[in-house]
Design a protein around this nucleic acid. Sequence first.
DNA 1: TGCATGATTGCAAGGGCTTGCACTATGGTG
DNA 2: CACCATAGTGCAAGCCCTTGCAATCATGCA
Lengths: 344, 344
Amino acid sequence: MVKANKVAALPPRRATLKEVAKLAGVSTSAVSRTFTPGASVAPETRMKVLAATRSVGYQPNALARSLMTRRTELIGLVANNFDNPVFMEIFDLFTRRLQTRGRRPLLANLSGGASTEAALEMLLQYSVDGVIVASSTLPQQFVKACADAHLPVVHVFGRPTGGRAPIHVVSPDNVQGGRLAGEELWKRGYRNIAFLGGPQTATSTEDRLIGLGDSLSKHRLKPRVVVYGHAYSHEAGLILMRQLLRNGGIDAVFCGDDNLAMGAMDACREAGVDVPNEMGIIGFNDMAIAAWPAYHLTTIHQPTADIISAAVELVLSIVEKPVKKPMVHLFDCRAVIRGTLRAA
Amino acid sequence: MVKANKVAALPPRRATLKEVAKLAGVSTSAVSRTFTPGASVAPETRMKVLAATRSVGYQPNALARSLMTRRTELIGLVANNFDNPVFMEIFDLFTRRLQTRGRRPLLANLSGGASTEAALEMLLQYSVDGVIVASSTLPQQFVKACADAHLPVVHVFGRPTGGRAPIHVVSPDNVQGGRLAGEELWKRGYRNIAFLGGPQTATSTEDRLIGLGDSLSKHRLKPRVVVYGHAYSHEAGLILMRQLLRNGGIDAVFCGDDNLAMGAMDACREAGVDVPNEMGIIGFNDMAIAAWPAYHLTTIHQPTADIISAAVELVLSIVEKPVKKPMVHLFDCRAVIRGTLRAA
DNA sequence: TGCATGATTGCAAGGGCTTGCACTATGGTG
DNA sequence: CACCATAGTGCAAGCCCTTGCAATCATGCA
């Protein structure tokens, strides 16, 4: 006749607010208010509630709470570049920053042709408070779609749109960075300069090339060759650089990313081409590996940590109070001189 | 006297199930069932519901749903190694795998001394269905704490506990991998072998060393020196290898991780020590960079993709039906021969 | 001592969804 | 043609929490 053994050691179902209230001999409101910063609860009541809470191991259900508060404290983090080691640092910074601000990152991986519609649906169904899209190779329209769905969204590593869509952007100033690269190359006497970019559709690649063109044109020069890779990858850099070496006619390469640059360096190594004397190479991003002795790559540094904090603060602020006018934060880059460009 | 302008173009608040029901002229149950696979709804009703759904852009609220279903489809993903590029691949695989299985990864970053208690609280408050802890450098007790809190948890890259705690583990067989490294070194005539490990507290480092010891002892040998780094990092490898070179007496190093190995290689390069003739180096993990020509590192490969899928399937299965006996999946490693060990 | 003030409190009504239950058609069966 | 299973439906209760409101209480002040 016994229905079940209710003698289990620990409660298999988690304690609820109501149970805590009964145990503490107070109303559910009192319990709720105990966990609501700024709510009015008598110290004595609070004590009783906390004691009951501890004794049953109560944890408020954030999801149920979100139903009333209309805030989940969830921030969607969307990316599609899980093959680029730079993004490790970026994830680290994002997740930690969000955590210290009391938010949780809900990840959407858009690599390998995952559906953007599905990702957007997911973000909506889980009622994220805001979205951070961290990519320069993702179609603008995904970010646009988030905005259209009334999701506060900031595009990190994106490009400011010419006011057409109200999209907030936080990004390194890729054009300025490209200019910097051009200057360094010019200063050191390189005159036949190639641009080795990532995907042609990536706005970052496009802007870095524009910057390079800018600075070269001041000296009545233009990039000799422009080639694009399928990705910001070592492999692409290797293959494209082999091709550039075969065709000849250049004495330096500005690579749109460090992975590309390191691939290019390896192509030079295998062809017996001396870097930096026969061939100057400059990268972009200043990822950790670029500093390793095997490469010691001269590159354009972007202030990643600043970019990330700015992005997080921005998204949290527009969650708080929406703003119509698209905000744009562009961060200056600086050149980090190592060994792949000859002395000035 | 007008209270507010309700003329806004798009609904600022998202449509709810009730609204869809009214619009479609059916009960809320019908709408709910339309979105519940396997529920009984007449085709005609379903059509009406879907039409209404489309017309107001309805998206079911996953969080409200979870209140009744007691399932959030959220899986906690806990890690603390955002400085190691291998983890990029690991994250990619995890997030994609979870996505294709209809689950969402909620990230907890435990780097840099973030509080494990806070992380656990977060996982509980957001009612994740299960947890994946991906780290070999995290204190066991965090995983244990999850299990004690009745969270289905699997420890990836962890070590099987001797049955003390019922913790599920999916991991490369680090001991077997260590043995493999020892064999390769022995076969090639290296006899004075050092072990350059990661943090001494990392079970992966410990087990790889055990494996090395195992295989050397078959030949009546022991590791000449054992040193530990503060992290699985290039820097640690560089510093420790410098020290080993200074002390002398060894002709090969088994590094507990590729980052360490590449650091060690750079130390040899700077000391003018010839790899592999004067010094053999073998790593662990086979991360992408290890294959780049600048390193061309001989290393122990672990089947990361298999490990990740197994981990995801395992956590989903124990969410479905809890299992008492700790499950352990250990995956064999294999040696990848490149250029940092001389020929046999 | 009487009253205004502000701090605490509990009630009850939600928030958006699922689901057991009872009920209506519907079609098939003998 | 009566009868029964079955599919489809809506009602209403419930998941766990927050919060406006009105009631209560203690306090400070005149």
